[in-house]
Design a protein around this nucleic acid. Structure first.
Lengths: 250, 250
DNA sequence: CGTGCTTTTGAAAATCATCAAGTATAGTGG
DNA sequence: CCACTATACTTGATGATTTTCAAAAGCACG
């Protein structure tokens, strides 16, 4: 019954010849908590995978069998209501660690918004490894703490900010921390913000509709705060004004 | 300016004779990760404090010098915008651990909504202790992971749920996990939900106004979903209907 | 150069916020 | 014990931001 066969989530599945040691994402990820000489033990667990754009590689409610580490590309993390309403809780890019749940099932779904490369670890095996590398456990706690802070900031945005303030916050945050896709998080503001996600994704991230997102961006443009050479790229023209808007000052 | 504060935050400051060993909150907190025989080392760091209702004991932006563990009472955790808009990101009750931030300053404020008892730890000292007790570090990671899941659920609520759905979610969650103040989190539904916080707090938690909270509760009452003997107590009359509403089913 | 998608733009509708009283409730002091 | 005050809560009328519904305009891809 070939027609019932589930299409494999994963397009390619390899153990790179020089697995973690040469990983470009390592400096940005929890993996850098492990010494160069111990890195092989981690590499033995890692499976590097390609994920096509649009592919869901974590399904909310599924048994949580793996941890993931994003090594390239971007994913959206989301929760759904039965009628299809969606809240995107965050975007994961290079270095982001996924699957930090105590529960036995995933609390959120994850879908690639652009072609991705991810590193997959068996949950129980990585857990076992963590016992030998408390430094990595410490890093995980740091990561979780930072995400918690970001989540609180997002709650403020979703609960109390206007549409204009939400878009301004989004652009500013993207500009500072995800300038052009690289999560180098240089603390300098980017001129150009590249948005790999659709307006629909942005809307579901900010608790708005696509129409409101589009209208608000258009208005920013008419106010000379930004330029929109094409839908995916935003040029920041008045960073100060945007930052001010983002923090709730009118 | 916290430095200019006249009245002391803390009303009473004691090291109880049997510090952590007999702590009622320990079974609910991260402290239970430490063995009975090692508990003294933790107790040596702990300072037990009383906090009056309405007192702010964590100020957003202040240097993060302490961790806290709630041993009795309830606090609201919040973030503010410059013009006074407030988002309550959560309520902390018995067993809740506070202060998990990597940053050197608190990312949120905390205020007692009813008389509280908290356990205070010096950040650097507890950090040092954690090196000797990886089990506690593990527990902290669990706690942070769980809070992350709760935060994502709250983002779904704030970004995508209607006022009715938000209130229903709030009542159901309170009924299951905070029945009558004890965070036993028994998985049975409570008949009565006691709300130590004001309507204003509920509104700021759910991203609504006090008027909408009040009206929605009144409507639930007229629909026989709940009873409101007094503003602080809510009787759940139709738990199934509320749960259904909370998950977005109309 | 269609075809299908995303994005933009417009008009109408709706939910929720704001403004404004009015009613409980609790705490205080006479 | 009872006014008296302050605060919290409820209820009503109006209004505004955002959503919904609808359709046109861009863009990418075969």
């Amino acid at each position: 019954m070939t027609h019932l066969r589930v299409r494999p989530l994963i397009v390619e599945s390899v153990r790179p010849s020089e697995p973690c040691a040469a990983c470009e994402a390592r400096p940005f990820s929890v993996c850098n908590a492990i010494d160069q000489r111990d890195i092989e033990r981690l590499a033995a667990l890692a499976v590097s995978l390609s994920v096509d754009a649009g592919r869901t590689f974590i399904e909310e409610g599924d048994p949580a069998e793996h941890f993931f580490n994003v090594t390239a590309g971007t994913a959206k993390l989301f929760k759904l209501l039965p009628d299809g309403r969606r809240q995107i809780t965050g975007f994961a890019s290079m270095g982001t660690f996924l699957g930090l749940a105590v529960s036995s099932t995933y609390a959120f779904g994850a879908e690639a918004v652009e072609p991705m490369r991810i590193c997959r670890f068996s949950r129980p095996k990585l857990r076992a490894l963590l016992d030998d590398f408390p430094a990595m456990e410490k890093r995980l706690l740091e990561v979780a703490s930072n995400e918690l802070v970001a989540a609180q900031e997002q709650m403020l945005l979703l609960g109390r900010k206007t549409a204009r303030e939400r878009l301004a916050s989004f652009l500013v945050t993207r500009g500072v921390c995800a300038g052009n896709g690289a999560p180098a998080c240089g603390h300098r503001a980017a001129e150009k913000v590249t948005l790999p996600m659709t307006r629909s994704d942005i809307a579901d991230y900010l608790g708005l509709t696509i129409e409101t997102v589009s209208r608000t961006l258009t208005r920013f443009k008419s106010e000379r705060l930004i330029d929109i050479p094409n839908a995916a790229d935003i040029l920041i023209r008045d960073h100060a004004a945007l930052r001010s808007l983002a923090t709730g000052l009118h």
